[in-house]
């Protein structure tokens, strides 16, 4: 399969990730959506890397993305639990203290 096919899958996954962030009213879905978006980016990195110059750069980026995603998931989960304890809800729309 050509490069275009991978990029298309990546674009679709990216869009679905955004939908996942926007439409659901549970902060865990926001987390999942972010993971989807990161995965979409990863597909692009690796695909362009393998079809392109085949230096290590793209795959290195992918690895760093995975690392950062792991770190982000850990911190985000801690935040989710804190938000839950603070607001007794996991709906992002209820955690709107920022506007106070």
């Amino acid at each position: 399969m050509g490069l275009g096919a991978y990029v298309a899958v990546s674009a679709a996954l990216f869009g679905l990730g955004i939908v996942c962030i926007l439409v659901r009213r549970n902060v865990l879905y926001v987390l999942m959506g972010i993971e989807m978006i990161l995965n979409a980016a990863n597909i692009n990195f690796v695909a362009f890397n393998r079809f392109g110059a085949n230096e290590l750069d793209g795959r290195m980026f992918a690895i760093f993305t995975i690392i950062l995603a792991a770190a982000e998931a850990a911190v985000a989960l801690a935040i989710v639990l804190n938000v839950f304890h603070l607001f007794n809800s996991v709906k992002p729309s209820e955690a709107d203290l920022l506007r106070e």
Binding site: I21, L22, V30, P92, S93, D96, L98, R99
Partner: peptide, 10 residues
């Protein structure tokens, strides 16, 4: 004026 809703921001 800020709603503070992250999804709206997103």
């Amino acid at each position: 004026l800020q709603t503070g809703r992250i999804q709206q921001y997103a």
